[in-house]
Design a protein around this nucleic acid. Structure first.
Length: 567
RNA sequence: UGAGGGUUGGUGCAGCGGCAGCACGACGGGUUCUGACCCCGUUAACCAAGGUUCGAAUCCUUGACCCUCAGCCA
């Protein structure tokens, strides 16, 4: 907890993060000494699913604020609905937050740990005449609530005496009633213009076993009741949530005021929307349970675990969350920005290697039959400290099918009959002939090399228009490579009639028989590299085995040729 | 048509009474042993109309459009 703070002129730490309205509020509160200069935030996930990139925005915001203002950020599981929540989810959430690089120290909490206190608060409310047990059915309550334009009307049970309410609530807790028989409601105003304030339910009966409290309780607090009080109990200063809770703020404030307890400030911001993806838990669960993807960590999923398996780094995700900013307006962030961030990060971190995805055999006719020589390649041209490695070169190579065209269009700079290109880190190579199969498909190239260009430069100073990657046929390792694209073909799947109808059928393309350079033989699961000229890839953490490496494409390189090609 | 929010280049975010800026994208050029990275340049915005002011994206008024709320989900 930061300083004792008597004076109002607290130092506001500088930060790399761009300004936003939440920071303005916090700085204002520090300035006025509203919370004695303290800044305590919280990330309050419900453990009913895996975390996704949208949660990352909230995590980076809340933990980032606590770091920049020298405060704390609590990780609190909002586990008030036993029917949907599981320990598997709490474990994955903890792992994902940690992986993202954040530390909640010893501030790990569960709303379920507060059930006793919450119950007492409910009793207090009843005693003050501000809550009552309603015996209307769920259906009746709905009808009594009124509509957006018409006021609701009071429940016939609204004026039960305090003693009767106390007794009834006690019986609810003791399990005397069936689910749905009654509910504890705040006594506010059935004619309130804000629907949230029309006597909201505070407690409901659920005869389900809770993942932590087991069968101790059969009544569970609703979000509106539990959340504000949990914030209060933990002495949170700024309770940051998404826009859809804006209407609930009035209730948040009402409950804390009614109970006259410590009162955090709720601030709402717009949740993340990402083009070509869905970020609603319901839809994500549907993708998993209906088998549209292989699991929560399918590399096409926008979940933290999916992005991790895809090859995204915590740094790139944090950077992304910083770049998109925080505001109140609904917006749609371009998926391209996320891709830019991972390229930027991996550009300086990833080893360059050569891999041929769609091999085309090349025979160098003037290269000695049994010869193999080792050539030096740099691991990262931008980072000399990352060193060099040796690449075997021999008479028969594989190059990328896309790097050869028998009849090249004007802007095609790569290999074609009679043309000379450079083999990266090796020699100049000239195509002298093609070998075709019975269908007329090119199956092999006959080429010559220039021994004087060893290492990649011509002594006579002549230039080539392009450099292509290659592997030595005898030395290359076979690999499987998975190329991923957007999971959805619609920019905003959520607005489609059925989001499942716009699932991209080509979202994954599994290639086998790919040829990668031998240095990759020892690559461990999770290893990230750039396949030169193709993109960033990582060794899959689930399906890769020592003898049969499997690579996932994290993201392509920017591809100017692809653009030129289709115009 | 109740209540609560929102509206700045193609996208996202700043600017909070004093020259509208940053990032991504797009486009053009330079560089290059990755058609990558990098570098340079161009493009392009204050929802509308009134008002206050020497001066308005910013303050006021009116309007338009968009989002959220009628769970015993969160």
């Amino acid at each position: 907890m930061s300083g004792s703070s008597i004076e109002n002129n607290q130092e506001i730490p500088e930060s790399s993060a761009p300004p936003n309205f939440i920071r303005h509020f916090i700085e204002e509160d520090i300035q006025t000494g509203k919370y004695d200069g303290r800044v305590v935030t919280r990330f309050p996930p419900e453990p009913n699913g895996y975390l996704h990139i949208g949660h990352a925005k909230s995590i980076c915001l809340n933990f980032g604020l606590s770091i920049d203002y020298h405060g704390a950020c609590h990780l609190r599981f909002d586990d008030t609905n036993p029917e949907k929540e599981e320990v598997e989810y709490v474990e994955s959430i903890e792992a994902d937050v940690r992986w993202l690089g954040f530390d909640w120290k010893d501030h790990l909490y569960f709303t379920s740990d507060y059930f006793d206190k919450l119950y007492d608060y409910a009793v207090s409310l009843i005693q003050m005449g501000k809550a009552y047990v309603d015996s209307l059915s769920a259906e009746e309550i709905r009808r009594y609530r009124g509509t957006l334009t018409e006021p609701g009307k009071d429940s016939p049970y609204r004026n039960r005496s305090v003693d009767e309410n106390l007794a009834l609530f006690e019986k609810m807790k003791e399990g005397h009633f069936d689910e749905g028989a009654c509910v504890l409601r705040a006594k506010i105003n059935m004619a309130a213009p804000n629907m949230v304030m029309r006597d909201p339910a505070l407690y409901r009966i659920r005869k389900a076993s809770h993942h932590r409290t087991k069968d101790k309780w059969c009544i569970y607090p609703m979000y509106d009741f539990a959340h504000c009080l949990s914030d209060s109990i933990e002495r949170i200063t700024h309770s940051i949530c998404t826009l859809e809770f804006e209407n609930n703020r009035e209730l948040y404030d009402w409950i804390l005021d009614a109970l006259n307890v410590y009162h955090p400030r709720q601030i709402e911001f717009a949740r993340l929307n990402l083009s070509y993806t869905v970020l609603s838990k319901r839809k994500l669960i549907e993708l998993v349970t209906n088998g549209h993807v292989t699991g929560w960590d399918d590399p096409r999923m926008p979940t933290i675990s999916g992005l991790r398996r895809r090859g995204y780094t915590p740094e790139s995700i944090r950077k992304f969350c910083e770049r998109i900013g925080v505001a109140k307006r609904d917006s749609m962030v371009d998926l391209g920005l996320l891709e830019y961030m991972i390229r930027e990060d991996l550009n300086k971190k990833a080893h360059r290697v050569m891999a041929v995805l769609n091999p085309l055999r090349v025979v160098i006719e003037n290269y000695p039959e049994e010869q193999t020589e080792m050539l030096t390649a740099v691991n990262n041209p931008g980072e000399p400290d990352m060193g060099t490695r040796q690449l075997p070169f021999s008479k028969v190579l594989f190059i990328e099918q896309d790097d050869f065209m028998e009849e090249p269009p004007k802007k095609f700079f790569r290999l074609s009959p009679g043309r000379e290109v450079r083999l990266r880190y090796a020699y100049f190579l000239t195509c002298t002939g093609v070998v075709k199969d019975d269908n007329g498909l090119v199956v092999e190239l006959r080429c010559t090399y220039d021994p004087a260009t060893r290492g990649g430069d011509a002594p006579d100073g002549r230039k080539v228009k392009s450099t292509i990657h290659w592997v030595s046929a005898d030395h290359a390792i076979d690999a499987q490579v998975r190329l991923y694209e957007n999971l959805f073909s619609s920019e905003n799947p959520a607005t489609e009639e059925d989001f499942k109808l716009c699932i991209n059928e080509n979202s994954v393309q599994a290639l086998s028989g790919c040829k990668v350079e031998p240095s990759l033989a020892t690559a461990m699961p999770g290893f990230q590299c750039q396949f030169e000229r193709l993109g960033y890839f990582c060794v899959d953490t689930r399906d890769s085995t020592p003898g049969n490496p499997v690579f996932n494409r994290t993201v392509t390189l920017k591809d100017m040729w692809a653009k030129i090609k289709d115009r």
